[in-house]
């Protein structure tokens, strides 16, 4: 009798844990959802990740491909690649992994003449842009977690940047202006503003790291 009581108790606990797990999933971080999906084959965790990123993957593909049908195909391919990705290979940052896979998928679609996809004319140089993001992310990590004291060196480091970059970074980081505000205030195009911010932040990271290494 006691045995059956234990089984009932265990089943109830399991149901409780399962139900609380299902309602909590959207609040989980990517790492936890990935672990749950990849290690426990938890389909709902994958669904949450899918809902979290499908519009972004589609949007990223849309930047490279003009044909919406091709974008949808590329998006499917990216998530299928995630499904098939070996569980013993770690995914350190899911957004970066999705971006890289989306980019590679679009490149292979563009190289396939039978796919008949059209490259967005102004984005022929997208390969060049990717590294800048990674370095910017590294700067954020550097300042937030690894060496927060480097923030004190920012004003001095900014002096070493070229004018456009310094101006945009100052307006963006110190004055809290948006891309559009900066564009209106400086007369730079929106694209130039993004480029100055992107490259300026990367250069800032390089300067700060050099200062850190020099002690």
């Amino acid at each position: 009798m006691a045995f059956y009581r234990h089984i009932c108790y265990f089943s109830c606990m399991k149901l409780f844990v399962r139900s609380s797990k299902s309602t909590d999933r959207p609040k989980w971080e990517d790492d936890r959802l990935l672990r749950s999906w990849r290690e426990e084959d938890d389909r709902r965790s994958f669904d949450v990740l899918y809902d979290r990123y499908v519009h972004l993957v589609y949007g990223a593909c849309r930047k490279y491909l003009d044909d919406t049908e091709a974008c949808r195909d590329a998006t499917m391919q990216v998530f299928n690649a995630l499904l098939e990705y070996p569980t013993d290979k770690p995914i350190r940052s899911l957004p970066n992994w999705l971006y890289t896979t989306a980019r590679n998928t679009c490149i292979s679609l563009l190289r396939d003449p039978s796919a008949k996809v059209v490259l967005e004319p102004e984005e022929n140089y997208f390969e060049k842009n990717a590294d800048g993001f990674m370095e910017n992310e590294a700067l954020t990590r550097l300042l937030n977690k690894e060496h927060p004291h480097l923030l004190d060196l920012l004003p001095e480091a900014m002096q070493q940047l070229e004018d456009g970059q310094r101006q945009c970074l100052k307006l963006f980081f110190f004055d809290g202006k948006s891309y559009l505000d900066i564009s209106q205030e400086t007369g730079f195009t929106l694209k130039q503003v993004k480029s100055y911010l992107q490259n300026g932040k990367r250069n800032l990271g390089i300067i700060l790291k050099r200062q850190r290494d020099e002690g």
Binding site: H55, Y99, F126, A130, E137
Partner: peptide, 14 residues
């Protein structure tokens, strides 16, 4: 958007 290539490209695309 400055840090995240996925979101930045998604914004540009959409």
């Amino acid at each position: 958007l400055l840090d995240c290539p996925l979101c930045a490209h998604a914004v540009d695309g959409l």
